[in-house]
Computed example of a mutant assay.
Amino acid sequence: MKDFIFISIFLFVTVLTTAQTSFRLDTIYTNDQKNVALFFPEPIRQGITGSENFVFTYNREKGQYFGLLQAKPGKESNLLVVGKNGTVFSYIVTYKKKLDRLNYFIPTSKSFGNEKPIALDSTIVIEREVKTDNSTYYYNKFCSYLVDRKQRIGRLKKRNEGIVLSIENIVFDKKELYFVIQIENKSSLDYDLNFLKLSVETRKKGKKKSLQRLYQEPVFNYNLPSKVKENETVKLVYVLPKFSISNDRRAVLELNEKNGERNLKLKISHRFINHPN
């Protein structure tokens, strides 16, 4: 039955494609050691691979925007994905032992048609949605994925009067570091956020030892709250340009309370910065 459905869809897509201009399929690489995440602009309704050595998993009940691709060694195949609104995406999938990329954010422009062609008349003008800032779209989707992902880099946590600041994960993607941060308020009072800053500290040598601090400005932040209510936990992400530090330096994450004294400083060793996930 699965083969019949796949052949039917494949024949339909073939007919649809020949009616359009020549379209070259992109290739996605995967293996059996890591999950390759594919993010689509609309919830996935159906995803099928052409060979059994490739497996594409997605949430069939909730219709989420992303799916996970894995493969066993073998010949290349293809992946066909149909979105909730009928948008069709197709890719060549190939096994590769060493992967250079683990996340693919697929824009609507990569679609080569719709399973139900739209009839146009002379009085209707349909405009494609143009994303003015592709980087913001990418950051939002990837940060959302990281917040839901259950992966930790190590034990990085600081407490003060019922407020718990922790770094759940540090992930390197493209040219940036993603800091997945969690703030827990276990106290009976709301926590009003004044600022959350990341800096790098360097110890000056000499008779008068002191610290030199250089703040790192994030290029994007995701889900940064202004308030953490009592008994509430908030996860957020700071995106910073990729950097590394020597073993005589350390990163410091500072959480400061507005009109309060429940301030925290979480020190991060160079090994966590230099060896992210």
Rank of each mutant, 00 (worst) to 15 (best):
N259T: 05
T132C: 04
N221R: 09
V237P: 02
V55P: 00
I106S: 00
R45E: 12
R155E: 15
L240V: 15
I183P: 01
L120I: 15
N185R: 01
P107M: 07
N263W: 06
M1C: 00
P107K: 07
D173E: 15
L80A: 01
A19I: 09
L198A: 09
N134D: 13
I5S: 05
G47K: 02
A19T: 04
N169D: 15
G206M: 10
F6E: 08
E176I: 01
F54Q: 07
I153M: 10
T21R: 10
H275T: 12
E61S: 12
K205W: 04
S135T: 13
K267T: 08
S226H: 10
F4G: 06
L177T: 02
E61C: 02
Y91K: 01
V164G: 00
L224P: 00
Q70M: 13
T49F: 07
Q20F: 03
F40R: 06
R101Q: 15
Q182I: 06
Q212E: 14
K116N: 14
S22P: 04
K131E: 09
N160A: 11
Y222Q: 01
D190Y: 04
I48C: 02
L196C: 11
R262I: 00
Q33M: 12
G86H: 03
I126C: 05
H270N: 14
K75S: 14
T132W: 02
E254Y: 10
P107S: 04
T30G: 05
M1F: 08
V219W: 03
E230A: 12
R250L: 11
V125I: 15
K258R: 15
F195Y: 14
R155S: 14
K204R: 08
